[in-house]
Design a protein around this nucleic acid. Structure first.
Length: 902
RNA sequence: GCGAGGGUAGCCAAGCUAGGCCAACGGCGGCGGACUCAAGAUCCGCUCCCGUAGGGGUCCAAGGGUUCGAAUCCCUUCCCUCGCACCA
């Protein structure tokens, strides 16, 4: 064997050939396919992407996380369901079609093609047989079918709602599509208008209570997401009572502070309240005010603005007549949009009263046990919003607030109510690229659903038009009424795309089923999703809607006993640009996944992303980091390649003599580290802390390199280490791992192999600490003493009696010295034992487990080579009996005596 | 304002839910050394201060407390991020 050419040979691997090769192999072996009859598989899911055209780093991170986890579970022998699909309806496709003079469908399909290609290039292992595309009729027909089932259940309503309307695009816009303070259409910069429209709604509020309460049980969800949903649902417990308003009849109010009713000094209506509107019709001043606040920006309207209506409301508690105002601070959609105001006990009411010169009357004062002294409360200056004890409240003086609220509901004919901030879900969109709502409007029969056998209602051909293309599709629009056969028109609105994503995870179970949205039995077995990973931006909308759907589907017996769709939820953090800012076009700090794949390969990108941070944390892209990941993979490959060529374990005649066998101390040391790494890596993968597992592998590889440099390694041990490392890397860097696996002469695919099994050796951590501490101590001594060239390092293990004394000290309660010296044998040690006992007594509370002298010695012998290597010195490990008594005397359990000779 | 999560050495970032093994994992950057003709790669150290045998001092936002002992538990304050918010 000639050395020179070997050394010069290019030993790395070429990702441009390796990665496609293994992608083909996986595909051919159908590795990621899961059979329909699989029992309760591990369901690992990433939020499916919107078909925007190409993957960005956020996608890459998201899908790398689930892919790594899915691969890990598969190697451990689990059945894994890891599907992918396309959230492919939505306005952006219509816009893109306009811009490119094509149609949404062609554009979307093109996006799917190129995104699929990129996903495959990333090596994501999906069961492509379960691919789901929401814009296909065989998917959206089930949106329509489910809409009808929801309607049968009374969960669909037609309501009037105020919406963002763009007069130029002639369509409603979602709140997030209205830009800036000026509220401009994101497409054409036209100022949007509020427009009242009749819309189809899902009455998600019917489930408000359960959606809220079950959040408490979602232990696998991040606290902030649960909190966001709680906020969004916004449960409020209070009471409603009626006030008689002169000339306008009874007006219902909602309050959480019914106890303060005696302090009401005015009544306030929101500008949108029906009674306010009524008054506006006859009162110019009110009309003007209502008009102003409806059209001005929020900023321009003073917080304490409002106008007296000239009307009075009768307080049911006092019989008193209080003035009625219309005030902008009263919100139409909070409570009933009307309230009685108690300036003494509400800050906003207080500010309003001050501005309008309305009396302030205190009716609650701090209770006796409150921090605040009633004397210090001056409600003329500042509202006192706390609960307390009633005053100036007629016969109810002295009641505490809570009791008063209960009494007053009865007393004033009110009703105890629970209100939610959550509104019903308006699903109508005046857009083309969505699921047609399967309804027909007949002048005689009203709204009639499209019969099931006529589903799907397919989208007509796309036409370029200013308004809703469905409205312009005359031929499509006009149909016979299914009930009376008369002339009728189709509903031309389509569904919010969040409907699509509310149940897609169920469609994966049986993507081709033609008789139902999904196979109920299988879904009941496979659901819920065990691991769901996606961006925090979906914390409320998508995740709330999906929870709602799941509960409804359970209630209408389409699934059995699945109340929540996602058991464990992870929100992956953002990938920031190198400058630490969010990647964006305007900052020019974006990194294209394609470029990284081309340049370094998918595995490098995947490894870098997974090493950089835990999934839920954000991190900044780093060219250095990518380099480091790339080099690491190349180095591991090189090491494996050399091993496979026999270069690592080849022995010179010298080495043959000194011999490295599997039972030598060095091999033993390495073997134990390998076991510990496997143990750690397994735990960390389970805990979704991939970076910790990867760190452990890096350490193991560093150790293998040192082993190899130190001696001709034992082949069996060395190979076991390599294999373990490669297997642990394989979920993250799968192509690379397959390549190494093959290079090491293994048959079959690594993707179908078994996860390495090993437990950390007994007391591994104690041993590791002993070794690390000893190495550090030696370094410390060499450093501080300034020993240039140590010749021999002698380590002497502490004698058995010290171990015993220590054990006694650990178990002694109270009199440590006494207990130790009570031991016959130790007492015979005299002075030495007494000193040591005193020493132990001083830190008796801090004593921890240590190895026996024999095991300490064995551990040090296993690790001796590390010191030999580091200091170029001979290392001698001695038992206390063999060592110089002066030296051995200095040793303690867990801390060998050290002597360094130059 | 309410709620959630945070503040760790030059930077990023573990550990903090089960207090001692924590001067505090790991990475980056920096410094020194080995190897090399050289560079790169790789390997070995160092990187709070002092110290000629494993020692001492000061540290984990700030202050206080509990404890033999606290980055870890409790209280207060300050700051940051996120969500909700003129919510009756």
């Amino acid at each position: 064997m000639t050395f020179e050419p070997e050394a010069k040979r290019e030993r790395g691997f070429d990702h441009t050939t390796v990665e496609p090769k293994w992608q083909r192999e996986w595909d051919e072996a159908d590795v990621f396919h899961i059979e329909d009859d699989a029992k309760d598989p591990e369901y690992v899911l990433a939020m499916f992407p919107y078909t925007s055209g190409s993957l960005h780093m956020g996608h890459v991170r998201n899908y790398t996380i689930t892919d790594a986890y899915a691969r890990f579970e598969r190697l451990r022998g689990e059945n894994v369901l890891h599907p992918i699909g396309w959230d492919s309806f939505g306005l952006p496709a219509e816009n893109a079609a306009e811009e490119r003079d094509t149609n949404p469908r062609d554009w979307t399909m093109q996006c799917i093609d190129s995104m699929t290609e990129q996903m495959k290039a990333m090596g994501f292992g999906y069961d492509w047989d379960r691919e789901v595309t929401t814009c296909e009729p065989d998917y959206y027909r089930w949106n329509q079918w489910l809409f009808k089932r929801f309607r049968d259940e009374g969960l669909v309503e037609r309501q009037t709602a105020e919406l963002n309307w763009c007069p130029s695009c002639e369509t409603v816009l979602a709140d997030e599509q209205v830009e800036g303070e000026a509220e401009l259409c994101w497409r054409c910069d036209t100022p949007i208008e509020q427009r009242e429209m009749k819309q189809w709604f899902f009455t998600i509020t019917d489930y408000a209570d359960e959606l809220l309460s079950e959040l408490d049980e979602l232990d696998g969800w991040p606290a902030n997401v649960r909190e966001m949903q709680r906020n969004w649902i916004g449960r409020q417990e209070g009471d409603s009572v009626e006030f008689e308003v002169s000339n306008h009849g009874p007006v219902e109010i909602f309050t959480t502070r019914l106890d303060t009713i005696y302090g009401a000094t005015y009544f306030a209506l929101s500008p949108g309240h029906p009674v306010a509107q009524e008054i506006a019709e006859e009162n110019d001043e009110v009309a003007e005010y209502v008009h102003r606040v409806e059209h001005d920006d929020d900023e321009e309207v003073d917080e304490t603005s409002g106008v007296f209506t000239g009307e009075y409301a009768t307080n049911p508690a006092t019989g008193e007549e209080i003035p009625v105002y219309v005030a902008d601070y009263v919100l139409e959609d909070v409570g009933t949009g009307a309230l009685y105001a108690v300036p003494a006990h509400d800050e906003r009411d207080h500010a309003f009263a001050k501005a309008h010169d309305i009396p302030i009357r205190q009716v609650v004062e701090p209770a006796a046990d409150a921090d605040e002294d009633p004397e210090d409360v001056d409600v003329q200056e500042e509202a006192y919003p706390e609960d307390g004890v009633l005053v100036e409240s007629g016969e109810f003086d002295g009641l505490d607030s809570a009791t008063a609220r209960e009494r007053f509901v009865e007393e004033f004919d009110g009703e105890h109510r629970i209100e939610y901030r959550l509104r019903d879900w308006g699903i109508s969109r005046q857009r083309y690229w969505g699921t047609p709502i399967p309804m027909i409007r007949c002048d005689d029969c009203g709204h009639v659903p499209v019969p099931d056998e006529d589903l799907p209602v397919e989208l007509p051909e796309f036409v370029h038009t200013t308004g809703n293309p469905l409205d312009a599709a005359e031929e499509w629009k006009h149909v016979e009424c299914p009930d009376c056969g008369g002339d009728a028109v189709r509903e031309t609105d389509t569904m919010d795309t969040f409907v699509d994503s509310s149940w897609y995870f169920l469609r994966y179970v049986s993507p081709d089923l033609e008789t139902a949205p999904f196979d109920a039995e299988r879904a009941s077995d496979w659901m819920p999703v065990d691991r769901y990973v996606g961006g925090i931006e979906h914390a409320v909308m998508h995740l709330l809607y999906a929870r709602f759907f799941t509960k409804v589907l359970d209630d209408i017996d389409l699934v059995d006993g699945v109340r929540e769709p996602f058991t464990e939820l992870t929100n992956q953090g953002m990938v920031l640009g190198e400058d630490g800012h969010k990647m964006s076009k305007s900052l020019g700090n974006g990194v294209s996944p394609q470029r990284i794949i081309d340049e370094y390969g998918a595995d490098t990108a995947r490894l870098f992303i997974m090493e950089a941070a835990q999934p839920e944390k954000e991190f900044a892209w780093s060219a250095d980091g990518v380099q480091s990941s790339y080099r690491f993979l190349q180095n591991v490959y090189e090491l494996a390649d050399e091993y496979a060529d026999g270069e690592v374990t080849d022995r010179t005649s010298d080495e043959a003599a000194t011999g490295e066998s599997a039972d030598s101390p060095v091999a033993d040391y390495v073997a134990r580290e390998i076991d510990a790494t496997i143990d750690t890596a397994t735990d960390e993968y389970e805990a979704f802390q991939f970076n910790h597992a990867l760190q452990a592998v890096r350490e193991t590889l560093s150790l293998l390199r040192r082993y190899r440099e130190h001696t001709a390694p034992d082949p069996e041990t060395f190979e076991r280490g390599l294999v373990a490392a490669v297997k642990i890397l394989s979920p993250v860097a799968p192509h690379f791992a397959e390549e190494v696996w093959e290079r090491l002469g293994n048959e079959g695919l690594l993707a179908e192999a078994d996860w390495p099994a090993a437990d950390a050796p007994d007391d591994y951590h104690i041993e590791r600490r002993l070794v690390e501490n000893t190495r550090e101590d030696v370094r410390d001594i060499v450093e501080t003493v300034g020993i240039e060239d140590p010749e021999t390092i002698t380590l002497a293990v502490s004698p058995e009696w010290k171990h015993r004394a220590r054990d006694i000290a650990m178990n002694a309660d109270g009199n440590v010295v006494g207990t130790i010296m009570g031991d016959e044998e130790l007492r015979q040690r005299g002075e030495d034992a007494a000193d040591f006992a005193k020493d132990l007594a001083a830190r008796s509370e801090a004593l921890d487990e240590q190895l026996s002298p024999e095991r300490e010695r064995a551990a040090l012998e296993r690790a001796a080579w590390l010191l030999e290597r580091e200091f170029g010195a001979d290392v001698v490990v001695q038992s206390a009996e063999d060592a110089d008594p002066d030296l051995a005397g200095k040793a303690e359990p867990g801390r060998p005596a050290i002597d360094i000779a130059e």
